[in-house]
Amino acid sequence: MTKHLLTIKDLDSWYGQMQVLHEVKMHIDKGEIVSIIGPNGAGKSTILKNIFGLIEKRKGKIFFDGKNIIKSKPENLTKLGITYVPQGRSVFPNLTVQENLEMGGFIRKDDLSEDIESVYKKFPGLKERKDQKAGLLSGGEQQMVAIGRALMLKPKLLLLDEPSLGLSPQMKALIFEKLIEVNKDGVAMVIVEQNAKMSLNISDRAYVLELGKNKMHGKGKDMLRNKDVAKLYLGGG
């Protein structure tokens, strides 16, 4: 199990009395992009929250770099190299773009300026708006700030919850293009998406989740061609 970057073993997870995940298993290798797809309420977001230590009531094992992190808190996981971009526009709306990025590297002791520059290079358009409040940017720009902020921690694993939610088709395409670029720098990713086409397209592998259970698992491109997947999750495509 140590050969994978992340391994989830038989994960059960509850909200109050309601069990939401049932013996979920998955793994992510170094540098991989892995998608989790499935219908509303399947538990996709809950898996990401579990990886990031946000869920208290749970059972099972999660290994990261060979270490069991089932008891770890978010602040420790960021130190190990996991970061999380939550669902929705997850910027600090009253902080400027620049301040958002600085906050991203808040726990680092070293100089941030170089990495902030490289975020601006990766997401052109943000630099001109660096002194604007992030809450005033467009949805796509906010998503780029959120991703840029996560990159400030130089993660090994980036967890993305519906990064294209509510964006225009062009903006969606742009975000996924950027994610490929980030991945080329060696950052592994777990992407949760309801609208799965684009996400499967850029994924090495994908898991289909249904009612909190593993339903299917395979290569991203194979999933795109799979008839069941197409019927259920790709809008007839």
């Binding site: 990031f52 600090f92 808040f106 921690l153």
Partner: peptide
């Protein structure tokens, strides 16, 4: 800087955790 983290927590608790703050 402590105050800045407070503002971050006020604006979005999950995001504040995502940047590694307790």
């Amino acid at each position: 800087p402590f105050g800045r983290v407070l503002r971050a927590i006020r604006e979005d608790e999950i995001a504040a955790q995502a940047i590694g703050k307790n």
